[in-house]
Simulated assay, not measured.
Amino acid sequence: MTETGDAEKPAPTPARAWRVVLEKIENDLLEGTLGPGDRLPPERELAATLGVGRSSVREALRVLEVMGLIRTATGSGPTAGAIVTATPQGGLAQLLRLQVAAQGFPIPDVYETRLLLEEWAVAHLAGLSDTDLADARATLAAMDHPDVTIEEFLSLDSQFHLRLTEAAGNVVVSATMAGLRTTIESYIRSGADRIPDWGTTGERLRHEHADILAAIDRGDAEAARSLVRSHITGYYADAGLPMPTDA
């Protein structure tokens, strides 16, 4: 009779088998066995090594792909199979969007997080000697078009702020902002309906955007930080949106 200590561990149940694959790949990433650009072992090999079905391997790979940790391609050749990606910001952004959609993040928390990220981004940009802000400038130019609608203006406004965080060069910051963008657009759009004189407000926002860029261009980090904070909080107050400290 085989002793308990020598008995083989039971195979994982199908409902949890895909987690075994996830844990294996996670451990390999943490230990440095796998890294960006590396190809995962074939499905058949992973299934045999881990004692799970190939369907469980495929389920785990789908989860990793949604998370942005791998990309998969069929066929043969150097681009086929499952390959570890170097910049999984798309997956992070998608997960944040889903959490917000499921009301996992309260809107006041999103607002405060936006302030933290954007204040850091503009101050960081102001400290750089060579920064490409062409996309941000192009967005502002589009906002100045005489025929731009309120909806288009607000969409471009959100895009402008996203372009600034992207230009700062921190992929985690830009991915977080991208994940929060839908929610940010939602509350600035709903707030616009409560602004009695949109023409005046829109003109003020245009000037504030230009002032933020000007502070970045002259390397004034403190001014850039102060301007972006007053810009965001000012709109929040004008639109009648509840501040995070409200009861």
Rank of each mutant, 00 (worst) to 15 (best):
D144N: 11
Y111I: 05
T49P: 03
L46N: 03
W18H: 15
V21R: 06
L125F: 06
T85Q: 13
L164F: 08
E3C: 13
S190N: 12
T113Q: 14
S158C: 15
I212C: 00
Y111P: 00
S186R: 14
L241P: 04
V122G: 10
T245R: 13
E59V: 01
G199A: 13
A15F: 09
I232Q: 09
E185T: 08
I83W: 11
G219R: 02
L117T: 11
G199S: 14
A101F: 06
Y235D: 02
G5P: 03
S56W: 07
A175N: 03
L205R: 11
G5N: 13
A168K: 07
R206W: 05
D132M: 00
L164E: 09
E119H: 06
W198Q: 03
V63N: 04
S155I: 06
A142M: 12
A175Q: 02
W198P: 02
I195K: 07
R54T: 10
R204N: 10
T165N: 12
N27P: 01
S129C: 02
G179T: 07
A17N: 08
E45W: 07
L34P: 05
G81R: 06
E8T: 10
N170F: 06
K24E: 15
R97C: 00
A126C: 07
A123P: 07
T87P: 02
E45I: 12
E203K: 13
S129P: 05
D238C: 02
E3G: 13
A7V: 10
T2D: 12
L116H: 13
P146Q: 12
A123D: 06
T165D: 12
D246Y: 02
Y236V: 12
E222A: 14
T33H: 09
L69Y: 14
L241F: 06
G202I: 03
I70E: 05
P196G: 00
E31V: 13
L241V: 00
D28R: 11
E8Q: 14
G91K: 01
S158P: 09
H124N: 15
T200P: 00
H207M: 12
A126W: 09
A86E: 11
I212W: 00
A82I: 04
A221I: 08
I188F: 14
E8N: 08
S155A: 14
T79Q: 11
A239I: 00
V110Q: 10
L162T: 09
T165M: 11
I195H: 09
A102Q: 08
D109Y: 12
A102S: 08
L22D: 04
M243Y: 06
P196D: 07
H231D: 01
E119L: 05
D238Q: 10
Y236L: 15
G199Q: 14
P41R: 12
D238V: 08
L115Q: 14
A224M: 03
V228P: 03
S158I: 03
L133D: 01
D246E: 15
V21M: 09
G5M: 13
T131D: 05
R62N: 12
E118G: 08
Y236C: 06
T139I: 15
L64C: 02
G77W: 05
S76W: 05
L115E: 15
G91I: 02
T245I: 09
A224T: 05
G179W: 00
A192T: 02
L92P: 01
P14I: 06
R229N: 07
A142Q: 15
A215I: 02
E65A: 11
P12K: 01
R218I: 09
T85W: 00
I212M: 01
A11Y: 10
N27D: 14
E151F: 10
T200W: 06
L133C: 06
V57Q: 05
E166M: 08
